[in-house]
Design a protein around this nucleic acid. Structure first.
Lengths: 253, 253
DNA sequence: CCGATCGTGCTCGTTTCCGATCGAAACGAT
DNA sequence: ATCGTTTCGATCGGAAACGAGCACGATCGG
């Protein structure tokens, strides 16, 4: 592992775990404690973490967010693990739709190049354009909060098209409320995605499980395959099983 | 392999693999480590990657999200001067279309917030979304070279809509060939933009003047106002004047 | 045909990295 | 407060990586 990569990893581990000991880091990264200490000292000087006896804590200032931009993404490790598993679903499909969202972005970063990608996220489109032969965008109005395209133009695009596979995100996944999201326009788009996709893969990190948001856009049995990092509550697991939903719980450890 | 192609490949490898060592790159690309190191140094200076002892990591800053080509914008000073002048045209308009392109991007960075912006560039849409209340995207297929949206979906969007003002870019501006661009699909889109816009402002730095590209998409007299940094050749200036085109030559000094 | 220029690989002396060791400092329990 | 344990920083040496400079060959323009 490159020294700088190791330092980035340390910052990430310290930040996500709310502090890590020197031993834990040495163990995890497979470097000597001496090296870990050197790294911690350097990172503390840069203000990216705070040093304490025996280990390090996340920096309190905002400065850390600036230099390592991806920090804004919650549960990044979980999302990456989910994404790594999700791309395996692509085999033998041609037309794949990517819902806007951070988890689906991680999926997009791992896709093979020989497919036709469609998305309602301009950012995702640009990223996909660097990897994939053909990328299509739905068009429509840009919703500022999520950077997703919505509205009549986007919806009419959806009505004219069909997909082999959909990578779908959600804000809430609940046994009673089903799949939910805060915005009506986005909910309508997601509804159409589900309707027009042959196979629906829901990528969903643990923070969404058991949550209910404002608008429901799908039932649990609309999903063909759920990929998550969380151990699902028993009742949800049972309901999904009864609905014939395949569930993959990806270890993040 | 061309040196420049090799560098692009390096950026791609480093970015997709979350970091690569000098040895890996030398091995993969079949060049000596010395050459790889030279490339890495140059790329690090451009900010496209970050150097680390033994290899390189993907750049972390926001700047890195820009694609490889966009980094080296030619005539940036000229384009900024043109853009600064161009935004003055917006007064009392509501619906403004931004053609994809580097000069129009500079315009977009200077727009006031109280308008409805429409564009066929996903990158521009994201930038506009940070400044402007409402942003719409045409949708369509992403052309990889220019990152512009083209094709039937994009065209049918254009056919349904109308604009007060268009900021248009071009590859060639010639007294005989008119306005030209290398790609047929993009030419068709530009044609529609011109048709649907009430007022056409052509933003065009000096490198385009006198150039002819493959496909013509407009005549000189389709333009209402040309903003450039170049002193136009006499014959072109006369023809524009005869066609009733307002011309603004913006000093870059 | 010749000289200039550029890209590339090689050599060599220098810098950086990393694990090990050891005395000093900090910690926690009594 | 004291003692045993853990952690710390400084130092060292070997290995790897580095930059600078030079040489060779290809390309280009005159």
């Amino acid at each position: 592992m490159l020294p700088e990569a190791r330092k980035r990893k340390i910052v990430e581990l310290v930040s996500t775990h709310d502090g890590q000991s020197v031993s834990e880091l040495a163990d995890e990264l497979d470097y000597s404690k001496a090296t870990i200490r050197r790294d911690l000292r350097a990172l503390a000087e840069e203000g990216l973490i705070e040093r304490s006896h025996g280990g390090a804590l996340p920096a309190t200032s905002v400065a850390s967010e600036r230099s390592y931009g991806e920090r804004e993404v919650k549960n990044l490790e979980a999302k990456r693990a989910i994404a790594a598993r999700a791309v395996e679903e692509i085999a033998d499909t041609e037309v794949v739709f990517f819902d806007a969202g951070t988890t689906t972005t991680e999926v997009a970063r791992r896709v093979p190049s020989d497919l036709l990608a469609v998305t309602n996220s301009p950012q995702l489109a640009v990223e996909l354009g660097e990897r994939v032969e053909e990328v299509k965008l739905t068009g429509g109005t840009l919703r500022s909060r999520t950077r997703a395209l919505v509205g009549p133009t986007a919806e009419s695009f959806m009505e004219r098209t069909n997909f082999d596979l959909l990578f779908l995100g959600t804000n809430g996944l609940d046994v009673e409320a089903g799949l939910t999201t805060p915005n009506e326009n986005e909910a309508r788009m997601k509804e159409l995605m589900v309707e027009k996709a042959n196979r629906v893969v829901l990528v969903c990190d643990g923070s969404k499980v058991g949550e209910r948001s404002f608008v429901q856009f799908a039932e649990l049995d609309d999903v063909d395959h759920l990929i998550t990092d969380a151990a699902l509550p028993k009742r949800l697991a049972e309901t999904l099983d009864a609905a014939g939903v395949r569930v993959t719980e990806e270890d993040t450890a």
